[in-house]
Simulated assay, not measured.
Amino acid sequence: MNTDDPDITAGHLQELRRGTVVLAALVVLREPGYGYALLESLTDQGFAVDANTLYPLLRRLEKQGLLTSEWNTEEARPRKFYRTSEEGTRLAHDLMTDWRRLDQHLRALTEETS
């Protein structure tokens, strides 16, 4: 197997990033925001995510009770605003705690092998 194969690398990078986008969305949406603004914010912060991935993710997180939403119809174009729920805030905290633990262990592993 050739580990220099860009398709293999891209697939593994996609897997690695998938969970981080969930965590990033929960963190960013502690303040209410709509989908496109979230997409821009995540992109600006280095979380490259496609709109075709983000919008279904938002609906799934809402269905799971991790986000709440409401429509803003005061503007010419109605927008659905999302906000992290209390349950989503707890999950984000738990995920960050585990992320930090994993990062610490990975750093230790890479120092041992260097």
Rank of each mutant, 00 (worst) to 15 (best):
Q14V: 01
G35N: 05
F81H: 06
P32H: 04
E15R: 12
R101H: 14
E62Q: 15
F81W: 09
R101Y: 14
G19V: 05
L67K: 08
Q14R: 14
E87W: 00
V28P: 03
G46H: 04
A76C: 02
T97G: 11
K80H: 10
P56S: 10
R90C: 00
R83W: 03
E40K: 11
L23G: 04
D98C: 06
L39V: 03
L106D: 07
T97K: 10
R79D: 01
K63E: 13
E87M: 08
E74K: 12
M96D: 14
G65F: 05
G88H: 05
S41E: 15
M96S: 15
V22N: 01
H12F: 15
E111W: 01
T110N: 14
A10C: 00
L39W: 09
L39I: 07
F47V: 04
T73H: 06
G11W: 01
E62H: 14
V27D: 14
T84Q: 07
R30H: 10
T20K: 11
Y55W: 12
W99G: 00
G88T: 02
D5F: 02
K80S: 03
E31T: 13
E31Y: 02
L66T: 05
E74H: 10
K63Y: 05
L54G: 07
V28M: 12
H12R: 10
L67H: 07
R77E: 13
D7M: 09
D103Q: 13
E15P: 00
V49M: 02
R60F: 04
Q64H: 12
A48M: 06
P56Q: 09
L67C: 09
R17T: 04
P6A: 05
L106P: 01
E70C: 06
A108V: 03
A24L: 05
L102N: 12
L67S: 04
E87S: 13
F47Y: 15
T53R: 14
W71L: 15
T20Q: 15
L61D: 02
L38V: 11
T84S: 13
I8R: 09
L54A: 06
A25W: 08
L26N: 01
L29M: 11
G88I: 01
L38T: 08
G19P: 02
A25C: 12
R17D: 08
A48N: 11
